[in-house]
Design a protein around this nucleic acid. Structure first.
Lengths: 233, 233
DNA sequence: GAGTAGGGATTGTTCAACAATCGGGCAATA
DNA sequence: TATTGCCCGATTGTTGAACAATCCCTACTC
């Protein structure tokens, strides 16, 4: 019975991907890729006619895709003016880190109630980052760093918090690409990730909470400094 | 020069309201009103043809309005099946309160850094609720209760947190209307709002934090009990 | 009663058209 | 020169119709 249920569960999980067709979704995926990869710089205009013809879809379909991306905060829609790649102000960066301190802090303080598996996941992600660093795969170090913070927030055990973190980190990626070589930015934080994971595994949540706070304040300061150098406004 | 800059600043603030037209926005406002007022029960289907003809707009326009409402979590869009008024599960209710504890708790703990004005706003909203209760305006008591919690979360000083709270409370409104007489639900919490506001004004944030936690757990329990009685699934 | 083939209704997507608006250039004026 | 007013091309906002794809219900078969 368990094996049979597993078949069903697997099918159910796969069916989500199958039914997920929808041209709008696919177009949105394409644009999202272009944006998060940094091929579309913040502030760039996205003319509907040009893009719809390039993607071989109708203008209306492209418009619906725009709505999806606007929902995710990757683009902004200005009435009668068009759609533009989102450009974060310094106030935005400060606010993102403010919310990150709240959500990741809540995750750390909830680590005991969250149980052992989510805590283990945090450690696993750090190990993955260390492995990538040892092998010089700097891009993977960056994604591991992002996944680390997602794993910390996931300690809240809340789907909505997971959603919010995904959005916040997507917004930050907009900033990362403005300053060159995003990889070098994540590297120095690996030891601190390790220390946090160890503190969590040991159950010393008070120290972990303080550590994380300082961590995020430092990261914000560094990012802000690098960002002001490029984006004066 | 300062006065001249003030003129400009005022114009700039007002200009946002002027350009805010857009048929899509207006249609979305209409539907949002119908949903939050409870005229559209959760789970109800929203056929595009019917609604677009009723609102005298094109089907495409109605679709874009749907995307906006889906972004706010008021409706869900199922591929090839249509749009339905969002129906919250018990797990959703639990998660909403989980996040509320995180955000409102962060607000309370941040009250000192937030400064006096946001704290004063919390007290003002409570006073407004008490006035409404004294005059028997129960509907206003409900809205004052909601605004109270928004004011508490606003102590974070974060636009993004404000956004999240607005979304969470909008989701909760979907639940309120399922159980009859939402007014009676908010009334008993007025004294606790008052106590919390006083604790905040006095600067006793530790007690306020504990109080708020217990508060939200109680509210969740009561709402969950009332909700299971109506919505077994 | 369970499974299965219609068939009507709804959604997904496209296309073409027109009104409304924006942005830039150009000329007129002081 | 700087400002104002105006025009024009380009882009967006919105509409209506059309067709394919899909879902859901019903009637039919065994």
């Amino acid at each position: 019975m368990t094996t049979q249920d597993d078949w069903i569960a697997n099918l159910k999980a796969a069916s989500g991907d199958l039914a997920r067709s929808s041209t709008v979704t696919r177009v949105a995926d394409l644009l999202r890729q272009q944006i998060t990869d940094g091929h579309l710089v913040p502030g760039a205009a996205l003319p509907e006619k040009l893009l719809s013809e390039a993607a071989n879809v109708s203008r209306n379909t492209m418009r619906e895709a725009f709505r999806l991306l606007a929902q995710e905060g990757l683009v902004v829609h200005e009435f009668n003016r068009g759609v533009f790649v989102r450009s974060l102000t310094l106030a935005d960066v400060a606010d993102v880190y403010r919310v990150r301190r709240i959500l990741e802090g809540a995750g750390v303080r909830n680590a005991a109630e969250a149980g052992p598996e989510p805590v283990a996941r945090v450690g696993a992600v750090v190990a993955e980052g260390e492995r990538a660093a040892a092998e010089g795969r700097w891009a993977d170090v960056g994604t591991a760093d992002i996944r680390f913070h997602q794993a910390v927030a996931a300690l809240c055990g809340s789907p909505r918090v997971d959603d919010m973190m995904r959005h916040l980190l997507a917004e930050l990626r907009l900033v990362f690409h403005v300053m060159g070589s995003a990889e070098r930015f994540h590297g120095p934080y690996l030891p601190r990730n390790r220390r946090l994971a160890d503190l969590l595994a040991a159950g010393d949540l008070t120290t972990a909470d303080q550590e994380l706070r300082a961590y995020l304040y430092d990261a914000e300061a560094q990012l802000t400094a690098a960002y002001t150098a490029v984006e004066p406004a």
